[in-house]
Design a binder for these strands. Structure first.
Lengths: 243, 243
DNA sequence: CTAGACTAACTACCATACTAGTTGTATCAG
DNA sequence: CTGATACAACTAGTATGGTAGTTAGTCTAG
C-alpha cells in the first residue's frame, strides 16, 4: 500500500469519524493521482492498512462512488474510475452554470467591503505564486477564492455541488501541470470577476466567470493523447459526437 | 411504524440492494410528508419493520443526510430535517442556475426532432391533468419533462444535482397543494421553454426557464405561517436577511 | 422543595462474522 | 494440445455483536 496514503491519514483530524477521514484521504489521493485511474481498491487491504474495520472503508467507497470517483461493482470489486471526456465536459458545464450564477448574484446583491477585501487579498497572494511558479499553493488559493465567493452569496449547497464536480476537473488539472494555463492568466481572470462584482455589473461578472470556466477545455484533447491509460476508452461515436 | 412505508417497500425492485431500496422508500416518504419534519428515525426500528439488519438502514441514513433530508447526530439520533427557508432558497437558486443553463444549451445546440416531439407530448399530457386537477400525475409528468431536457442535453450529472435539490423543493410543493400555482400556468411555461428551444433562441429559452423556476418563491412565506412545525425555527436575523 | 448525581435506556459508530456471487486457474476429458 | 468444468480465492452485501457517548428520569442529599 502506498506510503502517501498513510501520510494523508495522519493529517486528518482524529475528531472526525473514521468514515469521513477515509473519504478525505481517498478523495485527495484520487485527485492527486496517487491512486491511478483504473486501479482496484480493496476494502480489506485498506482496512488493514489503516488498522480499521472494513465497514467505514465500505461507507467511504459508497460516498466516493456517489461523487463519481470510484465505481463499485457488486461482488466484483471497487475501482478508481478513469477520466472520461464526457464526465469532464459534464462537470465543466455544471460548474460553469453554478459559478456564473453565483458571480451574477454577487454583482446584483453586492458584496460587503470586508468580503471584497478578502477576495482581493486572495488574488494578491495568487500573484505571489507566479514567479517562481508554485502550483500547489495556487491550487489552495484558487479553491479558497471560489469557495469564498460561493459561500458569501449565501449558498453552502452550491459550494457542495461545486466541490463535487471540481474533483473530476482537478484530476485533469493535476495532469496538465505544469503546462497548464499560466497562473498569471488565471489570476487576471479572477481579478476581472471581482472588479465586475465590485462595480455591480452582473452581466460583466457573469461573462468574466464564464470565460474563466472555459479555460480547462483547451488542454483536454492533448492530455487524452498523452495519458491514454488515465482515460476511459472513448468510443468512436463519442469522439465524433464531440467533434 | 407507518403503513405507507411498508407499501412503498413492496414497490421497490427486489434486484436492487437493500440500501438503495431503503433510500428510495425513505426519500419518497420524506418528500411526501409521510415522515414529518423533526421526526426521529431509529435504525433499529426501521430495520425490524423491514426485516433487514441495521447496517443497510444506516447506510441509507448517510445517503439521506448527504441529500440534506435527514440529520445524523452522532450518539444522539437521526431526524428528518425541518424545512428551512434558507435551504429552500439555496435549492431554488441552484436549480435555476442549472436548468437555465440547460435550456440555453438546448437552444444553442438544438434538439433532435424526436426529442422535441417527446417534450411536446409530455406537455400535452400535462394539459390533461388540468381539468379535473390531477396533481399526482402532473408531478410525474413534470419530473419527466425536466429529466428529459437535462439528459438530452447530454448531462446525467446535471440531472443528479437537480434531483437532489428537487427533494427540498418538492416538500414545499407538496405542502402547497392544492392551492399552488395552477397546473395550466406551469404547463404554459413548459410550452414557452420548448417553443424557444425549437426556435433556436437561447436567451429566450433561458428567460422562459428562469421565470418558470421562480414560481415557487411566491407561496413560501404563507406556507411558513400555516405550517410552523414543518419549518425550522427561523431566527430574526435570518428573516431580516431575506427581507 | 430543590439541586445535583447516578442510573437505565437509548443512540450512532465501529468491529467482526457470515452469505452469495464473480473470476481466474487448474485439472481432466476429448 | 484444446476445451469445458470444477474448485479455490477473491469480492461486496448483509447480519450481528460490542463500545462509547448522550439523554432523560429518578432518587438522594441538603
Amino acid at each position: 500500500m502506498n506510503k502517501t496514503l498513510q501520510t494523508l491519514w495522519q493529517e486528518t483530524r482524529e475528531s472526525d469519524s473514521v468514515r469521513q477521514r477515509l473519504y478525505q484521504v481517498l478523495r485527495q489521493s484520487i485527485i492527486r493521482m496517487v491512486l491511478e485511474p483504473g486501479q482496484a481498491l480493496s476494502e480489506k487491504e485498506l482496512a488493514d492498512a489503516f488498522s480499521v474495520s472494513r465497514q467505514p472503508v465500505r461507507e467511504a467507497f459508497i460516498r466516493l462512488s456517489e461523487a463519481g470517483l470510484v465505481e463499485v461493482r457488486p461482488q466484483r470489486g471497487t475501482y478508481v474510475v478513469r477520466i472520461s471526456r464526457q464526465a469532464v465536459l459534464e462537470a465543466r458545464f455544471l460548474r460553469e452554470a453554478v459559478e456564473v450564477a453565483i458571480a451574477r448574484a454577487a454583482a446584483e446583491k453586492g458584496l460587503a467591503p470586508p468580503v471584497l477585501r478578502e477576495l482581493n487579498e486572495l488574488i494578491e497572494r495568487q500573484r505571489g505564486c507566479i514567479e517562481p511558479a508554485d502550483h500547489d499553493r495556487f491550487y489552495l488559493l484558487d479553491e479558497a477564492f471560489h469557495r469564498t465567493m460561493a459561500l458569501e452569496v449565501g449558498n453552502t449547497m452550491a459550494w457542495r455541488v461545486i466541490e463535487d464536480v471540481k474533483a473530476q476537473l482537478d484530476r485533469v488539472r493535476y495532469l496538465s501541470i505544469p503546462d497548464s494555463t499560466p497562473i498569471a492568466k488565471l489570476t487576471d481572470q479572477h481579478q476581472a470577476v471581482v472588479t465586475a462584482i465590485a462595480a455591480r455589473q452582473p452581466e460583466q461578472a457573469a461573462q468574466a466567470m464564464a470565460i474563466h470556466q472555459r479555460e480547462i477545455l483547451l488542454s483536454l484533447p492533448e492530455l487524452e493523447r498523452r495519458f491514454p491509460t488515465m482515460f476511459e476508452a472513448s468510443t468512436v461515436s463519442a469522439t465524433l459526437a464531440e467533434a
